[in-house]
Design a protein around this nucleic acid. Structure first.
Length: 303
DNA sequence: AACCGATTCAACCGCTCGCTT
DNA sequence: GAAGCGAGCGGTTGAATCGGT
């Protein structure tokens, strides 16, 4: 039928997003919610195609994103889910709140693949690699939870499926247990102490309405890995100058993200000193969706 | 300090799927 | 059923960063 290009490429910008573009997109989505992506760039005043906007939002700007490396448990879940679903990254991601398919795909290709090969497991089939010599995983991996593979002589005697099942059932039981008793430890980092719906599915995230955005100002001492290049899902471009700053002017930062009027109305009592200095490290700020937490206040309650 | 290969990850591309007309 | 369209998915790319020499 002859497919129309997703957008008119002429005059459209490509490549990395600037802080200004991020700001426009965030402003637009928070004001209007997610609507027809094709119309977003026009309405938001962006010289990008709708697809690019959607990708930027879902993979980077969405307020409910977790940042930083995947936890050990998340990694195991990915491995288990991959053994069942294959490269269906979005399906895998739907089981990991706050993680995107792109992030998981990248993590799989850069970390997990290597790890599995090291352990003598074929990342594609999740079965022992042929011609596997005795490769012992590092100490911490053995202690971690994934069972190390038996020596090749033993593997050869076993049904390969069984080997896979050993790995899978361990993980599956952990997942099942959590689903059963509502264990919240599935969430890591800023989500740790929060209520997490076990049925949560990224696919089911509704259109984000402004009043649904919460700022917990939660002070977490977790994961140094979360001190990576972004802050609560916002572009590192926006806040890159703030890395390693322990005390900063909250109003100023928010101004760089949102309109001044919007920011001036924020309630800054959470974890803030009398001068509106937020007393947490910027990389620990998170904006989880639909999660109620004591002390968390909706940004938009104050508008 | 400079170079270079390896690694990481944000962004792009092209395709499929599902809905509407 | 065919056509048109928007959204989403998975594979790939390439710039930025890291680490070794």
């Amino acid at each position: 039928m002859g497919r129309q290009p997703c957008c008119d490429k002429v005059g459209l910008k490509k490549g990395p997003w600037t802080a200004e573009e991020d700001k426009k997109l965030i402003n637009f989505i928070l004001t209007n919610g997610q609507c027809c992506w094709r119309a977003v760039p026009k309405l938001a005043g962006l010289l990008r195609c709708g697809k690019s906007c959607r990708l930027r939002w879902t993979n980077y700007l969405r307020p409910d994103l977790k940042r930083g490396l995947l936890s050990e448990f998340e990694e195991k879940m990915v491995i288990d889910l991959h053994s069942q679903l294959g490269n269906r990254w979005s399906k895998i991601a739907s089981h990991l709140p706050g993680r995107t398919d792109n992030e998981i795909k990248n993590h799989w290709n850069t970390h997990i693949k290597k790890k599995l090969r090291k352990m003598g497991i074929d990342p594609l089939t999740h079965k022992p690699l042929p011609n596997t010599t005795t490769i012992q995983p590092p100490e911490n991996e053995q202690a971690g939870g994934l069972k190390s593979q038996p020596p090749p002589s033993e593997v050869a005697d076993q049904n390969e499926e069984e080997v896979v099942v050993v790995v899978d059932t361990q993980l599956q039981s952990a997942i099942t247990d959590q689903a059963k008793d509502g264990d919240k430890s599935i969430a890591t980092g800023p989500f740790d102490s929060m209520e997490v719906n076990n049925d949560f599915c990224i696919d089911e995230i509704p259109v984000i309405e402004p009043h649904e955005i919460l700022i917990p100002c939660e002070n977490s001492s977790s994961s140094p890995s979360s001190s990576s290049s972004s802050v609560g899902g916002f572009s590192s471009n926006l806040l890159e100058d703030l890395e390693f700053v322990t005390t900063f002017d909250y109003n100023e930062i928010m101004s760089s993200i949102w309109d001044d009027d919007f920011v001036s109305n924020l309630d800054l009592h959470n974890n803030c000193d009398g001068n509106n200095n937020l007393m947490v490290e910027p990389p620990l700020m998170q904006f989880p969706l639909m999660v109620s937490d004591e002390g968390a206040g909706s940004l938009f309650d104050f508008l």
